[in-house]
Design a protein around this nucleic acid. Structure first.
Lengths: 262, 262
DNA sequence: CAGTGTGAAGGACTTCACAGCT
DNA sequence: AGCTGTGAAGTCCTTCACACTG
């Protein structure tokens, strides 16, 4: 049929790469799941630092981050031993360490394509968490939008992606267009050298292997929640439908990976 | 700053529930990961149906959905045997089957709290993918917003959640407030009987076990992408930093779970 | 002796590969 | 012959539990 086969979707997930096949160095890999949580730990550390804390135990940090302490320690062990036995972790130095590992010391330029409803909100989301993610380029196809400024940034036409993205040093692209336009935009971004894409459009993007796509799919999230509400996820619902299969895990989401917006 | 980065945790994740401890019936559980993909398959089937397709093979469907065919067949096998050997799946009946399993035949009322930047965009996202997810209640604390109508829905004050949510039969709540307000709002929703929450605020919500929370955390997503850009996820980057640990999986996200917005 | 770091055990998916319908 | 459905094997991640250190 017509639909292109899709590849990229969300949470990265490529089988390949046998773990630890680096040339000169035996770098122990950091699990994908861990990387997402490190970002959460970093945010929590920021809050603790504001509160004046100088050290935290794995137990405290884990509880605020919503994970169990063993997992947190295992996660941190992937980046090295920065804890003090019998005491905990030094808040400030752990923060720096996490920023370094996540690569936040070299801020990335972000391009946003699609400045409609959602895109506009994203563009206004200044600094994305306050940490080095300036949206440096905006694109759309709507003549009414091209040319206007949002937060001081001019909206360019999508056709100019090939010129503007490299010029602005864009390394991360966000797609907030209607589904039909997403693949085309994605292709343009990839051609412009973008290797990391955050996709808000309800489509599975096809991309070459070197490109990482993460998706934020509201419809899917709601449907998963609906599944649980329908009593298919757990027996908590009032009248459990006897015909419905149940999910293995139940309520109360804790860790996981997703994209925040507001 | 208006749009807060999100903390939400996202993909549900509770160890508990030993799989298959239902009283009268040995319902084989549907893995959480599968549920999220079923929603994607459903969307793809819709596109195929529009294109006039009557049947699809697991190979075709999988390719468009961005997963491998074995995984797709395993996923579908969790909901029963609706395929025809030697032929494939009947598009229409598989659609109905998926809708039934996901509980989309009983549309859920959704409440949205926080009608700022992002919240406003979400409220305007009419029908969320076109399928039964009417946003039936809006809340905020801003006096300038309380009382106005968005898409025909009046914005109520957050303090009225206890009254309005039950009245509107709300079963799913979406939180798009700044981080500081999120936990308070969450508590109100839970008190009002909401058992499923989609959190866009950059905070980890504390909820009782019966409540399922999924998060959409933009800051985390961008940081994960930044991690990969920094060459910590793969050796594809120009100058690979020898100090950086690498991630086990590399680029090109395939499956995963997230929320689409468009 | 409190609290980290970690081998070992345990789960939850994923992928393989093939038996079995149509 | 073609393609689904699925046991078995394999992988990635989580949880346990404990040795070890400050």
């Amino acid at each position: 049929m017509t639909l292109p086969p899709q590849a990229g979707s969300s949470t990265a997930d490529t089988p390949g790469t046998p773990t630890g096949s680096a040339p000169g160095r035996v770098v122990r890999a950091i699990p994908e799941a861990t990387v997402a949580r490190l970002a959460v730990y970093l945010r929590v550390l920021g809050q603790l630092a504001e509160g004046g804390a100088e050290t935290v135990s794995s137990e405290e940090l884990a509880s605020v981050a919503g994970v169990n302490s063993a997992k947190l320690r295992k996660d941190l062990s992937h980046i090295g031993s920065y804890g003090i036995r019998g005491v905990g972790y030094d808040v400030a130095s752990l923060q720096h360490e996490l920023e370094r590992v996540l690569g936040l010391d070299h801020p990335q330029a972000v391009a946003l394509v699609g400045v409609g409803n959602l895109g506009h909100a994203l563009a206004g989301y200044g600094g994305f968490g306050g940490r080095g993610f300036p949206v440096t380029a905006l694109f759309d196809v709507d003549p009414d939008l091209v040319g206007i400024k949002i937060n001081g940034i001019v909206v360019h036409h999508v056709r100019d992606i090939p010129r503007e993205c490299p010029a602005a040093g864009v390394t991360i692209g966000m797609i907030a267009t209607p589904a039909q336009a997403a693949q085309g935009v994605c292709d343009k971004l990839v051609a412009a050298g973008v290797r990391s894409i955050l996709n808000f459009a309800p489509t599975v993007l096809q991309v070459p292997d070197e490109v990482e796509v993460r998706k934020v799919d509201l419809a899917v999230e709601l449907q998963v929640l609906a599944f649980h509400v329908a009593g298919r996820g757990n027996a908590a619902a009032a009248g459990v439908d006897p015909d419905a299969p149940a999910v293995s895990r139940v309520v109360n989401g804790r860790n996981g990976s997703a994209v925040p917006l507001s």
